[in-house]
Design a protein around this nucleic acid. Structure first.
Length: 361
DNA sequence: TCGTGATCCGCACCGTGTAC
DNA sequence: GTACACGGTGCGGATCACGA
């Protein structure tokens, strides 16, 4: 037994070492004191050349416009100081009107879907409803489905997070019932999240944006890295908004933002629990509007739903290059649209969430 | 009561498309 | 690179209806 433990320990130690080594290969992102270029593995061919040229023109314009301007002069914020360094913290508040289904109505709607009970499909639900079983509560006395119904009723009363998993077992994550389940939380519980990074994997995060909605306002907090050394402080700032009662609201965050942040936390060996329930607006939006739209990018949705057309948008593939230009030139110009659009993304996400609730009620 | 066929349900797989 | 949705397909098991 002891021998096995020692063996296991050695195996885990080897795996851990290899894992650290694979991440540490990204040495080019360690901050260099000289002005050497930083290899971002940026691939221009990823973009249409017209889009690329437009972005280069934008960059030139911004470099000219912000020559000699300090970050604090262009974007109001303050330095967030933590025990592990500092980063630039930008806070804003805007009026917003977010309407989502209330908890009572959400519960009522969920309980009227008998297909949440194992063994009930479309046909069985039809016949059960014909027999007078309108809700899962009605099924409590049913000889076959009673036990499972009681179990679900306990879940919906005691454990909202588990309801999400339960619905996810029988319905796609983009299903209107899943959106309806988000109404089990108060709008103050939602953490809207969007990050800007230096690449797809194992690259530093350069901007962490978090937003929270209150009665009729949205507060946005952005943690920006003036240099890559500040990533730990930015992560610390982000974590200060999260508690176990929060629910994440993201655009493709299930695949990108959350795993990315988790990977960065692991890299710095920081503790942070991000297993909160998660509603990914991308999948709901696709289900709702993909037939009307050429694609479901956030900017496309913004234009279609709210008539907002962004000026000076930096394609996400070019964000690393823009940031790299800032690091080399110490000119904050290329950062400005990145920071502004990140903030706009957070607000748009909240608005799309509200619109989806309106459309699917 | 038993056997048979129909129906329903759950699940797995595949290819395609799409987002960051 | 990765994960997910979606539509299609097919398989196996459970359940039900029906006739003998």
């Amino acid at each position: 037994m002891l021998e096995n433990n020692a063996e296991n320990k050695a195996v885990f130690s080897r795996i851990g070492k290899r894992w650290r080594e694979s991440i540490d290969k990204v040495k080019e992102y360690d901050v260099r004191e000289d002005e050497q270029a930083i290899d971002t593995e940026f691939i221009p061919s990823f973009l249409f050349s017209l889009e690329y040229q437009k972005a280069q023109e934008l960059k030139r314009r911004l470099l000219e416009k912000y020559k000699g301007v300090l970050l604090e002069e262009a974007i109001q914020g303050e330095r967030l100081k933590t025990g592990e360094g500092s980063c630039y913290h930008i806070e804003n508040q805007e009026k917003i009107n977010i309407n989502i289904i209330n908890p009572e109505k959400a519960k009522e709607k969920i309980l009227s879907n008998l297909k949440l009970i194992y063994g009930i499909g479309r046909a069985t639900e039809y016949f059960l409803k014909k027999e007078g079983y309108r809700t899962i509560e009605d099924l409590r006395q049913h000889p076959r489905f009673g036990l499972e119904s009681i179990r679900f009723l306990q879940t919906i009363n005691d454990n909202r997070s588990e309801v999400i998993n339960w619905i996810g077992r029988w319905f796609p994550k983009s299903h209107p019932l899943m959106l309806c389940a988000s109404g089990l939380w108060k709008k103050e519980d939602f953490i809207i999240l969007d990050i800007e990074t230096m690449g797809f994997f194992s690259r530093p995060i350069i901007l962490l944006g978090v937003a929270q909605v209150s009665a009729n306002h949205i507060s946005t907090h952005q943690y920006f890295l003036e240099n890559i050394k500040e990533e730990v402080a930015a992560l610390r700032g982000f974590l200060s908004h999260i508690n176990k009662n929060n629910v994440f609201l993201t655009f493709n965050g299930r695949t990108f933002d959350i795993p990315y942040i988790e990977e960065r936390l692991a890299y710095y060996r920081m503790k942070g629990e991000l297993g909160n329930p998660h509603f990914d607006i991308l999948h709901f939006s696709r289900r709702a509007w993909r037939k009307e739209l050429p694609n479901c990018r956030l900017t496309t949705l913004e234009k279609y739903l709210f008539g907002i057309e962004r000026e000076d948008d930096v394609p996400s593939a070019l964000v690393p290059e823009f940031y790299e230009t800032y690091l080399r030139s110490k000119n904050i110009g290329p950062l400005i649209p990145i920071i502004e659009h990140n903030q706009q993304d957070l607000i748009t996400l909240a608005n799309i969430f509200s619109r989806l609730h309106k459309e699917w009620q």
